[in-house]
Write a protein that binds this DNA or RNA. Structure first.
Lengths: 193, 193
DNA sequence: CGGATCGTTGATCAACTTCAACGGTCGTGG
DNA sequence: CCACGACCGTTGAAGTTGATCAACGATCCG
């Protein structure tokens, strides 16, 4: 089982010793997920935090009108879960679904707790993960406050073009907070100029 | 100097021993801040994480059209800073200003690093802080995606009525992502029904 | 090949902004 | 302590952004 990408990923954040790294990696189990398969459903309790080795995922919620709203995408070298469910071990509110045939490395909540209890450095790692998540979501709040639909689209393209080209348009539109029709119009307009 | 509220606040999150708590609290310095005084300005590097003992703050950014966008409020028992600046020690992008005469307890970044290095439990505390921040910002992203202006206002009133009644209306409007005129109309409409 | 799903386009409509004018209140200097 | 100016919130009219509705072509997959 190939954990090299995860290994590199974590060593970029904290200085694990060889033994610390081995223990850390030993808790992760590989899982293959087929396109359109769900790894988290609302009401269930998110058992895993998943590191994407290969493939693409999307987490989303459904509002009372039945409309989907994409919360996050996850491609190679990203993490994905319903964190509110995972961290607090409460019922999930999100769907997390594979957009392609994918491979993830999963740690379950209990193992993560063990790791954090076992050593200072593991706690540090998960603190850094949480800080990044907070920074990411805050950037998105600011982007929603400051930019209009068209600007949000172009900002996303600048930063995450690789994601934009891999996910269905309705998923991207619902991530950016607009309808697929409007996103389509933005795109066709930007081609003409 | 009265650190009782901070003491209670942290004991709600982690189980410090008496010595651990004393060391933790010893790093916090009290600061009185007058209304309209700034504690963080863009370009500067946020030196402190501030716990609000008394008073109210607001952090905001200014866009290229000169419009203000409120990122966060902080009243008693909340924390406030420009976290992207504080955590990464990079130049701030936000203003943080006192909305009332206030008292905060501040820890500087270097001391926080010392604490985190000194003990597992301090790392745990700051991990929990970061997780809460991530959860908070994610809720706000979801609220922006799912709710319209009127619903965002009523949701805010349900959860944070105490804040709503203490801050100027333009600050609340810019937090909720609408103009002060539109907020005014929502409020007058809701009075009539 | 055939149905379902996805993206596109145009017309109409709703949500929200912008602009403008006004009354109230707050704080500051004389 | 009062007067004045600046700032704040309100209201209405007009304008813009983006949603909704509807119809259609393309593509994907069984």
């Amino acid at each position: 089982m190939d954990k090299d990408s995860l290994k590199e990923h974590v060593l970029n954040k904290v200085q694990f010793s060889d033994e610390e790294l081995d223990l850390f990696l030993s808790y992760f189990k590989e899982k293959k997920v087929k396109k359109k398969q769900f790894i988290i459903l609302p009401e269930s309790i998110a058992k895993y935090r998943s590191y994407v080795v290969k493939g693409a995922f999307r987490s989303y919620v459904i509002d009372e009108k039945g409309a989907e709203h994409t919360i996050q995408f996850g491609i190679e070298d990203w993490w994905i879960s319903d964190y509110n469910s995972y961290i607090l071990q409460q019922p999930a509110t999100m769907f997390v679904v594979a957009l392609e045939d994918s491979t993830v490395l999963q740690i379950d909540h209990e193992s993560e707790e063990k790791l954090k209890a076992a050593g200072h450095i593991y706690e540090t790692f998960f603190r850094i993960m949480a800080e990044r998540s907070a920074a990411y979501h805050q950037r998105r709040v600011m982007s929603n406050l400051i930019q209009n639909a068209e600007q949000r689209y172009f900002s996303f393209m600048e930063r995450y073009a690789d994601v934009a080209y891999r996910v269905p348009q309705y998923a991207l539109a619902s991530y950016l907070g607009m309808t697929t029709q409007f996103l389509s119009k933005i795109r066709s307009k930007s081609l003409k100029s």
